[in-house]
Design a protein around this nucleic acid. Sequence first.
DNA 1: CTGTTAGCGCCTTCAG
DNA 2: CTGAAGGCGCTAACAG
Lengths: 353, 353
Amino acid sequence: MAVTLADVAARAGVSPATVSRVLKGNYPVAEPTRQRVLRAVEELDYVLNGPASSLAAATSDLVGILVNDIADPFFGILAGAAQSAIGTSPGAGGARTEKLAVVCNTGGSPECELTYLTLLQRQRAAAVLLVGGALEDPAHQRAMTAKLRQLADGGTRVVLCGRPAPSRDDASVTVLTFDDHGGARELTAHLLALGHRRIGCVAGPEERTVARHRLAGHRAALVDAGLTEGVERMTVRGPYDRPAGYAGACELLSREPELTAIVAANDTVALGAAAAVRDRGLRIPGDVSVAGFCDLPSAVDTVPALTTVRLPLVDAGARAGRLAVGDESAPAGPLELAAELVVRDSTAPPPGG
Amino acid sequence: MAVTLADVAARAGVSPATVSRVLKGNYPVAEPTRQRVLRAVEELDYVLNGPASSLAAATSDLVGILVNDIADPFFGILAGAAQSAIGTSPGAGGARTEKLAVVCNTGGSPECELTYLTLLQRQRAAAVLLVGGALEDPAHQRAMTAKLRQLADGGTRVVLCGRPAPSRDDASVTVLTFDDHGGARELTAHLLALGHRRIGCVAGPEERTVARHRLAGHRAALVDAGLTEGVERMTVRGPYDRPAGYAGACELLSREPELTAIVAANDTVALGAAAAVRDRGLRIPGDVSVAGFCDLPSAVDTVPALTTVRLPLVDAGARAGRLAVGDESAPAGPLELAAELVVRDSTAPPPGG
DNA sequence: CTGTTAGCGCCTTCAG
DNA sequence: CTGAAGGCGCTAACAG
């Protein structure tokens, strides 16, 4: 059924070893021989047997990219950038490496995350890229630490993007994070500067790193301004989706009708919150300011255009991809990418401010 | 370095074959033996060597999902649904199949598409799922037909979701499509029923199946209404993104200032078009109606909420996933999923209509 | 139910 | 620069 290396060798009148060498391209072969082999490959429609190759070489060209939610553009953009950085990788020696960059959707589930890592480990993946926040459950973190170490010991490169290492001082993984704390702090500071004093927060899931960092940044700004009263009351939690934003804003508005601003866990949540605000007959930003986080492409298209914090997603993804294939050498320590406040039309001074 | 099946066998005091059998679970093994083996696996932290396994068995558990743009929620939703349908697959005999469902981002590039297929073919993938429209270039279609046949001949299941088969009567691939034509036709009919007579269209890329079908549906509705004049002039083309919608709407509005409605290639394009309309000082839907296609989750959050055509993305993805792993038997012929008109607030009768 | 025996297709020293 | 040979780790018949 399948044509093998040996068939090609026979056809080209050379040994299997020679065919292997021209295919890999990492070993000198006389040009005429090369041509002959290539032609034979053409004629026979030969395709390398990956499993056999990986078995013999004890490595594979698979690179796994794990994301929490593939339907969320945040992850899509990051993963897309990483994937194309990996695909266009020039390779170590100039020879194009045909890496198979694939993305795996964990749905944010820890079990799923571990399962995918094991599957990737089975395949002897060349690298694994974990994108986005992690669950802060001790048991899971322990399991992750162990698994990542196993992976690293097995020779697969591990890079984390947008999440901290599950355990300190683990030199085997390279880490790339966003300054979620700083970004959130700056955003809330902006609102405070406009004159807001009652700022609600629709935060993300309690047990997730990213959500915690953003909320902490928000609160740090509040503390900076001496506002410590009612903070807990003006915070609600929920998943990173639109309904959470809607429900969260409703809850906040009923708990605290005097609210003049709402910061959301991300742009999508902000959209939901904005809808809730509008449905209560309040204007944005006239009555209530609303702000997001991430600066997804759609943020500029909301009405009014969303004030948010821009995260360098494309840059981060590309960089993570390059780190994964070794095109870029790992930094000494964790690398933190800056977040930038983007003020648009959804925030303004409070009514009567 | 790596612990192998033989190590586990030695530890458990059984033969390698037995270990293999308990791991695969598809062969009777005495319970006590089973336990012993499982314990040895635990103790040794053994993980199966995928390449070796695939080589020996001549199959792998890899399932590739190819998408045109991973940052586009249309593909994200579809891919996510497929992936979870594959992951939760109960397997043929009740034993859980640990399929590794991965998504590959082609960026819409034909070369990339072919490259990924070859890579997947190398891995002897169990199935390949092609999601979204295809390029209608004869050379590429020929290449795809050949490649897909190779894949199918090699034993990998091929399913197309949202795209027609590259060549007719190819029984080796199973096809699942959306009724883009019917949906577009219904949408334009809705606009016509409201009284619109000058309807612009910001269509998708000319050479893509989906774009062609939607445009054809739109025009069919126009013909139904006896409106054939100026159709070409009221059509512009562009990629499936927001800037294309913005630019397209600007162009249409300057070509034909009397336009009272715009239908877009998809929801994202519609967002851009809406922004352009607003930026010209026109109101939606008061002066110009705007409609999208797909009904992405965000469509309901635009202001005004977008009239669009709903495509059953989750259902389609899940079904495609099940077809890919063989949980659902392939239909006799191509399966076409219905599209449903969703009327919201972005369409209304034309001014003075 | 369990052990034995051959490969699966390729890569990689080692000679020539 | 090219060929020969051994083995990567696992599975799949066969026996028993």
